[in-house]
Write a protein that binds this DNA or RNA. Structure first.
Lengths: 340, 340
DNA sequence: TTGTAAGCGTTATCAG
DNA sequence: CTGATAACGCTTACAA
């Protein structure tokens, strides 16, 4: 009578191939197997070869959970995103994921936008001994960040500067960017400025508004009207309609590109000639800003530089956990397209 | 002389609070602490309270690495994305992340688009005992999927059906969707059809092309011209220009929305009146399709249903690892906007 | 209901 | 250069 060997060995759940299995197959010790996979560990070259062969044959890979537990790093990095339905956030996350993948850090994503119980989700993820946490969000409960530093998990905040001795920050020069945009339109002869802001509590939106106000003040002007949007295209469209209802403008700055695209739609629907009668300028330079049919003049908030900087700060922090916290400011520049 | 106690206890790296620490603080055993955090474990309610208090005070959270190693699940799910710079893929990923977060699975992202050594990255991630791997990509090395099944990691393929006894699939009815779109334009009196395809090797693109061809055949027609794009807006724009150069069309179907948006730009730049002289229809219904200035008629490939289905199959597979593999087909529907 | 003890699969240390 | 052995922090039989 034949016996099902496989069933005997693993009755229910499949067992992963372990270093022990490879050791037996290659006729060496467990430690030799470990060394065969450790860069710069002492091991006879022939033996290493033999171990690698056996590992390949058995389909062995060192268990990252066990390796992480042993004391080293987990190589996991959480990215907390305020709202993944926001095009700019999504583009930043995309670059971040690429940059992290490239340095063999594995990003765990948490989307605050799609989640009811953000706090709870963060709590669960913090059970993993993360190498770091990246915050990508304009409005974020600072309590979460504090909790991380208590766990001695490095935090990199992107988009808003958190004043905490253990948190590194990357932030673009919002005020200067917006100021330059306003100056561009002033130089073009515009005088009746409107602004579409983001939701209350987003520092990026208010800093951008300040930049515009400052440029106007230098020219002896004040904004004619301000409306609030929600960073979405629809919100920008609605806010622009309210503005157009209230008053006549010849320049409209928006806290981000998505709202500027909405405003552009509202202007066209109303028969306003952009850019001849009205200039519209966004902020961020998301990829859609250059799409045909949009071709938006905007302030470039360079996403790739941004993401690289985050990863750079991360690496520096990992190398020296005790180093003083850092704030990296990213320079913006105007991108002149068809709406100014 | 004062001695730095902290330095004595943890000379270099910070030590995480463990169950042992909590046990000592609460005056109970390690196992009591574990039980206090395990749903449905026997433990005196008062004691549980005491443990929870101590844990909160010390900032303890069970180490997920150790818990995963112990034998249970890691609660990590890898999402492999073909190209995160593709708007449709990004939107699917966003939904997927939300759906996974909601069921306490933590998605690790790997972006094939931003990565030179995809294979190597996958190899590294497979060192984690993943609960599952989700493939989001039209073109994907099947070797990776095979490797996963060898490791007994459930694989869910989204967008392309992989014929493998252990891989579940979610796929939209590409052919039917495209056929309906072509029929819409036939009913409108169109006869000279063009198609902008995706890169070679993407089954979704060819299935969509087949759908169009089938509808045309039923009307005794054949496509007038086909050009290939790369699923991007720029690629669609270039492909459309080549088409317009070659011949006159009155209907243009595109393998995805991004290329349709590019084609729309090309048509407008050439002074072609859309939709009066030319109908353009996309596929997917990405959020930008409804943006003002675009307002694209398209075939809706419902992203939320799609993502929910993936997670549903995932849950089913986790519940019964031996169940036969499944293919879930998602129905599409036409979304009539301004370009048909 | 509780405590003790045995793993889970690594890597690091320490003799040889 | 190599093999045993001790952590890493948790869960879960098993015994009390």
């Amino acid at each position: 009578m034949r016996v099902d060997q496989d069933k005997l060995i693993s009755p229910k759940r499949h067992r992963r191939v372990t270093a022990q299995d490879v050791a037996e197959a290659a006729g060496v010790s467990r430690s030799a197997v470990s060394r065969a996979f450790t860069e710069g560990a002492y091991l006879d070259e022939a033996k290493r070869e033999r171990v690698r062969d056996a590992a390949l044959k058995l389909g062995y890979r060192p268990n990252a959970l066990a390796a992480g537990l042993q004391g080293g790093r987990s190589h996991l990095v959480a990215i907390f995103v305020g709202d993944m339905r926001n095009a700019y956030d999504t583009e930043v996350v995309t670059r971040l994921v690429g940059a992290l993948n490239a340095i063999q850090k594995w990003p765990i994503l948490i989307d605050g936008g799609g989640l009811s119980s953000v706090k709870e989700a963060m709590g669960e993820v913090l059970r993993y001994p993360l190498d770091a946490l990246i915050l990508r969000s304009g409005s974020m409960d600072p309590a979460i960040a504090r909790e991380c530093t208590k766990l001695h998990i490095p935090v990199i905040s992107s988009g808003r500067v958190l004043n905490h001795p253990q948190i590194d920050n990357v932030c673009c020069r919002n005020q200067e960017g917006s100021q330059a945009a306003a100056q561009l339109l002033l130089d073009r002869g515009r005088a009746r400025f409107g602004y579409i802001a983001g939701p209350a509590g987003y520092s990026s939106s208010s800093a951008r508004q300040d930049g515009m106000t400052r440029a106007l003040a230098a020219a002896g002007l004040v904004p004619v009207a301000v409306e609030q949007g929600d960073f979405t295209v629809e919100g920008g469209l609605a806010a622009a309609e309210r503005l157009f209802e209230r008053t006549r403008l010849d320049a409209l700055l928006c806290a981000n590109d998505a709202m500027a695209i909405g405003a552009l739609g509202a202007a066209r629907a109303r028969g306003i000639d952009v850019p001849n009668d009205l200039s519209i300028v966004g902020f961020d330079d998301i990829s859609m800003a250059r799409w045909p049919g949009i071709n938006l003049t905007t302030v470039c908030n360079p996403i790739d530089i941004y993401a690289d900087k985050v990863v750079e700060l991360l690496a520096a922090r990992l190398a020296d956990p005790e180093k003083p916290s850092d704030v990296a400011y990213i320079d913006t520049h105007l991108v002149l397209r068809g709406t100014h």
